[in-house]
Amino acid sequence: MPPKQRRSFEDLLAEGVAVPTEGWDFSWFEGRATEERPSWGYAVSLAGRLGGATAALDLQTGGGEVLDFALGRAAKTPALTVATEGWAPNVAKAAALLRPRGTVVVAAPEDAALPFADAGFDLVSSRHPVTPNWPEIARVLEPGGTYFAQHVGPRSVFELVEYFLGPLPPEQSAARHPDRERADAEAAGLEIVDLRTERLRIEFYDIAAVVHFLRKVIWMVPDFTVEAYEDRLRALHERIEAEGPFVAHSTRHLFDARKPRTGQGAHPGRIAPAHSQV
């Protein structure tokens, strides 16, 4: 077999810039980057939770890919399934993907109050929320309802972030810590049933994968453009070519929390959207 032909920095850079970034489909990275997956298998586990739910809400659903996967594998689907998303291109993508499954996609900013009635859902889920709004999650859960989610943990992919930005302050390194999130969830009135954490290996095999990743996960290097960081990108390209994959690590934690039962008999209305539905 002939040796694999090396591609130029300019060609790889152009490819990384050209790939669309909508949604949370990471299939383009196949052969370009790898990431270990948490042992708990979030999407499959979510399918099991959906099979036992009556009214489900998926927060910050991205392009709807994870929810679509889980709904497709659930033993039965909830009578009501709603998803929220704050970025317009993802709203349209999620709506097109999830509408055939009877899921309502609601355009809702990530930092705003949820546009739903109190105690409207027995399951709230989220995969990699930017910032979980614990008081709102607790408000829309019915007593006895569950919040089931996979969060990004502290210092996730920081090897790559600090390659571009330099050492980050300790307070930024401590962000997203599971102990802090546990305390915030409990302060909002939720009980933690299970909280697991794992540190996982990531490898980037070429600079196109790095560029696409930083364009897609925009909060990693917030001011990232190829123009602003061309020198660092070129140096990293040369390092990968000489030494092999750039290695980083992600951190993930699995939240399983419950809203305590209050013993109140009346059940409020299920859902009252206040934002546009797509």
Rank of each mutant, 00 (worst) to 15 (best):
S39I: 01
W40Y: 11
G41Y: 05
Y42T: 00
L46Q: 05
A47I: 13
A47W: 10
R49V: 04
G51H: 08
T54F: 04
A56N: 09
L59G: 05
G64D: 05
L67V: 04
D68K: 01
D68T: 01
F69R: 06
A70S: 15
A70H: 12
A70D: 13
R73M: 08
A74E: 14
T77L: 10
P78M: 08
L80A: 11
T81L: 07
V82Q: 05
V82G: 00
A83V: 12
E85W: 02
G86C: 01
A88D: 15
A88H: 09
K93I: 02
R101V: 06
V106C: 14
A108E: 11
D111I: 02
D111K: 04
A112K: 08
A113K: 13
L114M: 06
P115S: 06
A117S: 11
A117D: 08
A117N: 02
A117Q: 03
D118H: 11
A119L: 08
D122F: 05
D122M: 08
L123F: 09
L123A: 09
S126L: 11
W134V: 06
P135V: 03
V140K: 02
E142I: 01
E142F: 01
E142K: 14
E142S: 14
P143A: 04
G144T: 09
T146A: 10
Q150S: 11
V152S: 06
S156W: 02
V157S: 10
F158M: 03
F158I: 07
L160R: 02
Y163F: 14
L168G: 04
L168I: 07
L168K: 01
P170A: 15
A175T: 13
R176S: 11
H177Q: 10
D179A: 13
R180A: 14
R180T: 15
E181S: 05
